[in-house]
Design a protein around this nucleic acid. Structure first.
Lengths: 142, 142
DNA sequence: ACCTTACGATTACGCTTGTAATCTGAACAC
DNA sequence: GTGTTCAGATTACAAGCGTAATCGTAAGGT
């Protein structure tokens, strides 16, 4: 019947138009997104080439994840012959931004400074990080 | 029989002695930890006073979460009459550090600078954050 | 016209999470 | 002593996740 994921199925759009909580993306799903953020569109097989090796997954697993991501509205599909090409709908920067914000809010009361302090205390900052951040700060200030 | 959580039960210790992945703490569980990080030890009822209101939970829910946290080794109990006093085993800073590191690794290739850049781009930095971070940087450099 | 193959769809299944109701046994009030 | 009460323990159950096998079917080969 080939629907649900690809063509047709223009039923209730499940668009998360702003208030619906943006449908969290799980760890496994994130791996798939990464592959597609690096290059897109890709077929399921291509995605598998990238992730199956590094995570020890099999094709069906990738397929499932792709479907779930489509269902969540994080991926879009376009038919290409008899298969699908998958493209991210959710931009990497949006995702990353959301996750960062979540963390900062949950753990640091929404303030970035304590996060920074924490990273500093834990030697999690390389000298490059430090000078890079300095540079950014300078940029911000003028 | 009163075990599993409290006294006795010195069976296979389930200590995550370094290699076992530190047993993630879920969102709901985190709320309970927060209450105990603010003040400890506390009884289940006391914890509920704090969290039941703000999350709309009932006592049984809190009990479950407490048990799970004990099972995960994030909380410790000491008997007090016929009830238990709960105390965090996992320090807040350790948890926060772990989570921050996880995020930075997953999303920013382990480098803190891109995270910072991201926060900057998204106006997620208040002026106070900025000057605070400047101060910290100065401290780090000398 | 068939047969194989390579897709996506459907179904599966055990584990964790969120949320809670029920059970059991000890403590305290008489 | 006996009944009520209030702990923690046990059980429940639906949703989400990780991981996958299987099904139905359209494309392509021959």
């Amino acid at each position: 019947m080939r629907s649900k994921t690809g063509i047709s199925d223009k039923g209730q759009d499940k668009r998360h138009g702003g208030d619906t909580p943006p449908e969290r993306i799980s760890d496994a799903e994130y791996a798939v997104m990464e592959a597609l953020w690096l290059r897109s569109p890709q077929t399921a097989a291509q995605v598998c080439e990238t992730v199956c090796a590094e995570r020890g997954w099999s094709m069906p697993t990738v397929k499932t994840l792709l479907s779930r991501l489509v269902a969540k509205g994080a991926l879009d599909t376009q038919p290409d012959g008899r298969r699908f090409l998958y493209t991210p709908t959710l931009a990497r920067s949006a995702y990353v931004g959301g996750e960062s914000k979540r963390l900062v809010e949950r753990l640091f009361g929404g303030r970035a400074a304590p996060l920074f302090a924490h990273l500093a205390e834990n030697e999690a900052l390389t000298p490059e990080d430090i000078s890079e951040i300095e540079r950014l700060l300078k940029e911000l200030k003028q």
